[in-house]
Computed example of a mutant assay.
Amino acid sequence: MRGSWEDLEGGIAVVVRLERGYVADVTVASTRRPGLCRVLEGMPVEVVPSRVSLLFRVCSAAQEHAARTACEQISGLPPAPGEQTRRQARVILETFREHAWAACVEWPRHLGMAPDVGAFARIRSALQAIGEGLADWPDKRLEEEKLRVLAQTIDRALVLGGRTWEGPGALHSWAMLGTCPAARFLRKVWDEDLAEFGRCSLRPVPDMMAWDLDGALAADVDNRFVSRPEWEGEACETGPLVRMSGHSLVAELWQRYGNGLLTRLVARLVELVGLSDRLGQLLNGLSSNSASLGIGGNRVGLGQVEAARGRLAHRVKVEGDRVSRYQILAPTEWNFHPRGPLWRGLVGMPAGNADILQRQVGFLVVALDPCVAFTVQVT
């Protein structure tokens, strides 16, 4: 029996249909509830952000950040000095935790291996230490030692020895050593010739003008857009692969293997390794906080945040002092669109053993990283 959280959050069911040795079709069905956020409607607008953080256990910092951005636009009251940066720092910590969980725990589980819970526990402890320090920031500067410890924990978890991957050759050598779960996962991808598995042509979610996104959400009376989002008639993709596409290693892998399984996994690892530096630059004022985009006026607010899995948008409309309509567009709906990466990357490819294909499709789903449980069936 599924637990109450799973009942609320729903899941993703992927069915791959084979015909004459090829993948004839892929069905991606979601039992997620896009209307779940309607429980916020009728509430006073000032209590909504705190309720949002309680409503969603996955990426709750990003959800709250988007909600506060949207609600502040309506009130016309900007956050206190440093608060916007503090929120973004919490989103980075959350992204760090989600990526580390994938690399240390989720990936080995799908290989049938024991997760590295010790490495994840050390990372989580370092993240908690920084999170506690954020309460006094910027009045009290965050200790640089905490950032160094965080960088050291991920270096130790990935057995990098203080070095990052200089290119595909160095990455391959690291993977073949198999000294950590993430390396073993990549070695499996190379051993089974899966580097290009799932490769397809798919546009990234564009940097939409806030007014355009607001118009699409305002017209979405039947939840079709938030449950099956498209832009200009096309399914799109968001997440680490899009964010890291300009990184030299990811770009070189993309040139060789397209946006296949290997490139997707490495994009997650590259982002993970770089997050401690990104956090330090943010808190030291060396980078701008541009992760939240929105609108204001007409008693409507729209907050956009780059969460761990991709672009997250909250739209709130208020009548009087209460919420009359609340909408959330989550990255999972972009990445698991019925005609999204799974359908585009798998339909038409040759297929042999159904059990092997089921496991390999599972790898691709893990790389796309839904925020809910999933199943894969091959028929």
Rank of each mutant, 00 (worst) to 15 (best):
H247N: 15
L249K: 11
H99I: 02
R256K: 14
F336A: 10
A70R: 00
W174G: 02
W343S: 12
A354V: 15
R20W: 03
F56S: 09
A121I: 05
S287V: 15
V365I: 12
L134R: 11
L158Y: 07
P370C: 12
Y257A: 11
A121C: 02
G320Q: 09
G161K: 05
T69C: 00
A100W: 00
R122C: 02
G246R: 15
I74T: 05
W137Q: 11
P206Q: 09
L177D: 08
A182Q: 14
T27V: 04
V48K: 02
A218P: 00
R68I: 06
L194T: 10
G294L: 04
R122M: 05
A195F: 03
Y257K: 03
M209W: 07
S292M: 04
W254I: 01
A13D: 15
D7C: 07
W334F: 14
A183F: 00
S4D: 10
R243S: 04
G301C: 05
V305Q: 09
R187M: 03
E237C: 08
R17Q: 11
L134S: 05
L282A: 04
L142A: 14
G296A: 13
N335Y: 09
I356L: 15
R32I: 05
L346P: 08
D139N: 14
L134T: 06
A114H: 15
G198I: 01
V149R: 13
A235L: 10
G82P: 11
H314S: 06
A218Q: 12
V52C: 01
R278I: 05
T153K: 13
K188Y: 13
E9D: 13
W174E: 05
C180M: 01
R264T: 06
D222G: 10
W334L: 14
E94A: 08
R184K: 06
V47L: 04
E94H: 00
V105W: 06
V52N: 08
P168N: 05
A267C: 04
V316A: 12
E46L: 04
N298S: 15
R163C: 06
L160M: 14
C200V: 12
D355Y: 13
D7H: 13
V26K: 07
L346W: 07
L40D: 04
P229F: 01
D139W: 05
P168H: 06
P229Q: 12
R163I: 00
A66V: 01
D139S: 15
M349R: 15
D155E: 03
W174H: 07
A102G: 11
G297P: 12
A103V: 10
V361L: 08
A219D: 14
E83P: 03
E72L: 01
K140H: 12
E192N: 09
V189R: 06
P206W: 08
V91M: 02
L279Y: 06
P34C: 08
V39F: 00
I130S: 07
Y257V: 01
E271A: 04
I92T: 10
F197L: 07
D193C: 09
L286M: 12
S201E: 15
A13Y: 11
S60A: 15
A251E: 14
A126G: 12
V366E: 15
A175F: 00
L279A: 10
P78H: 02
R339M: 10
L150S: 05
Q304V: 09
Q360N: 14
